[in-house]
C-alpha cells in the first residue's frame, strides 16, 4: 500500500465537508474492496476518512412502511435482519450468495454499492485499462473475458459490476439516499450505477462530496414469488458468471407483475422493462419466459471467451422465472 493519512469522521456533515476539501481522499467503511485495491496499487488515495463512527447502522421502517437500511449496516446483519428476511427474502438470498461469511461481517451496504469491478485487467496494473487509466485501452476486449459483459458495453470497457446485493436492489426498485455539501438527494437504483460509455472510469453517479447514508426499499414485499439464481464457477464464494433476481405477483397462473434483474452481464445491474411488460397478463410458462429472455438478450454482444454467456443467461432467466412462479 502507498502511504496515506487517516482521520475518523464523527458525523455525516463532518465527513462530507472533509472529503469535499480533498480531491484525493476516499471514505472507508468495511474496507474489504478498497484495501484490496490499495494493496494492488489500483487505487492510491492520499487520505482515508473512516466513517465507521457515524451512526448509520440501523435498519428501521419509515412511517410510510418502507424499510430504511443504514449505509453502515453490514451485509451479514442486513441479510439476517428479521424485517429483511420476512419482507424482502430476495435481498437476503442475494446477499448470502455473495462473498464469504467473514467478508459479509465486514462489508457494508454503502460499500457494496460502491465496490468496483473484478475485471482481471482492472486489477493488473501492468496491463492497459480504460477504467483505471482513461485512454489507455481495454485489455479485456481482446483478452480473456470469461467474466465480462454482454449487454450495454462500449468500445472502451466491458467490465461488469460484481455485486449480488445490487441485483436484488434493482429488482426491488430500491432508492439510494445520499448526502453531499448541497444537501440530500435520492437516487433510484436504476440511475445509481452507470454504463461505461466513453467514461468507463466512472462506476456510478455519486459525486465526490457525497456520502451514501442509506438504502430505501419500497413497500412491495414480493414474499410469495421471488428467486435469486447465481451461476458461478464454483459452488460458493465466487463472483457470478450470470445471476438473475426475479420478483413477481401472480393470479391463477397469470403474471400480474414481474421484475427481472441480471448480474454478471453488464456494467450495472441489468433490467429490460419491455420484456417485463410483455410478460404481464400472460401465463407463467416455459415458452413465455424463453421469449422474454430472448427479448432481454437480443442485443447481446460477446467477446470470445464469454461467447457462452447469452445461452447461459437465457437458461438462467427461464429457470429463475420458473422457480419464482412455482412452475418448477
Amino acid at each position: 500500500m502507498n502511504n496515506f493519512t487517516y482521520t475518523q469522521a464523527d458525523g455525516v456533515d463532518n465527513a462530507v465537508q472533509e472529503i469535499a476539501g480533498h480531491s484525493e481522499a476516499r471514505f472507508i467503511a468495511g474496507g474489504t474492496n478498497l484495501i484490496d485495491l490499495m494493496k494492488e496499487h489500483v487505487m492510491q488515495p492520499e487520505h482515508l476518512i473512516d466513517i465507521n463512527s457515524i451512526h448509520l447502522n440501523s435498519i428501521e421502517f419509515l412511517e410510510d412502511g418502507r424499510l430504511h437500511l443504514g449505509a453502515l449496516v453490514t451485509n451479514a446483519d442486513t441479510a439476517w435482519h428479521p424485517a429483511v428476511e420476512k419482507h424482502y427474502p430476495l435481498l437476503s438470498d442475494a446477499i448470502l450468495a455473495g462473498a464469504s461469511p467473514q467478508l459479509r461481517n465486514m462489508a457494508t451496504n454503502g460499500g457494496n454499492l460502491m465496490q468496483r469491478t473484478r475485471c482481471y485487467y482492472f486489477y493488473d496494473t501492468t496491463t492497459p485499462c480504460n477504467k483505471r487509466e482513461p485512454g489507455a485501452g481495454c485489455s479485456a476486449m481482446n483478452g480473456y473475458n470469461r467474466i465480462h459483459a454482454i449487454l450495454g458495453t462500449s468500445p472502451h470497457c466491458i467490465a461488469v459490476h460484481p455485486s449480488d446485493m445490487c441485483v436484488a436492489l434493482r429488482a426491488l426498485d430500491a432508492t439510494i439516499q445520499v448526502k453531499g455539501l448541497h444537501g440530500e438527494r435520492l437516487i433510484p437504483i436504476a440511475d445509481f450505477h452507470r454504463l461505461p460509455g466513453d467514461t468507463p472510469q466512472l462506476d456510478n453517479n455519486l459525486a465526490h462530496d457525497e456520502l451514501i447514508t442509506g438504502i430505501i426499499l419500497p413497500r412491495e414485499h414480493f414474499t410469495q414469488h421471488y428467486k435469486y439464481l447465481k451461476v458461478r464457477d464454483r459452488a460458493s464464494y465466487a463472483f457470478a458468471l450470470v445471476s438473475v433476481a426475479v420478483v413477481a405477483t401472480m393470479e391463477e397462473g397469470i403474471i400480474t407483475n414481474i421484475r427481472m434483474a441480471m448480474g454478471g452481464v453488464a456494467h450495472k445491474p441489468w433490467r429490460d422493462e419491455n420484456a417485463e411488460q410483455w410478460l404481464k397478463g400472460k401465463p407463467a410458462t416455459q415458452e413465455n419466459f424463453a421469449y422474454a429472455a430472448d427479448m432481454i438478450l437480443q442485443d447481446a454482444k460477446t467477446f470470445g471467451t464469454n461467447d457462452f454467456k447469452p445461452a447461459l443467461a437465457k437458461r438462467a432467466i427461464v429457470r429463475a422465472c420458473r422457480e419464482a412462479t412455482n412452475i418448477g
Partner: peptide, 25 residues
C-alpha cells in the same frame, strides 16, 4: 487479499479477515 481466510480472527465476537482491515480502524 481476503480470498483464503487464513487470517480469520474474531473481532467483538464476529469472524473477519484481518488482512482487509486497518489496525487504526
Amino acid at each position: 487479499h481476503g480470498q483464503c481466510g487464513a487470517c480469520t480472527v474474531l473481532v467483538n465476537g464476529k469472524r473477519i479477515n484481518s488482512c482487509l482491515t486497518l489496525a487504526v480502524m
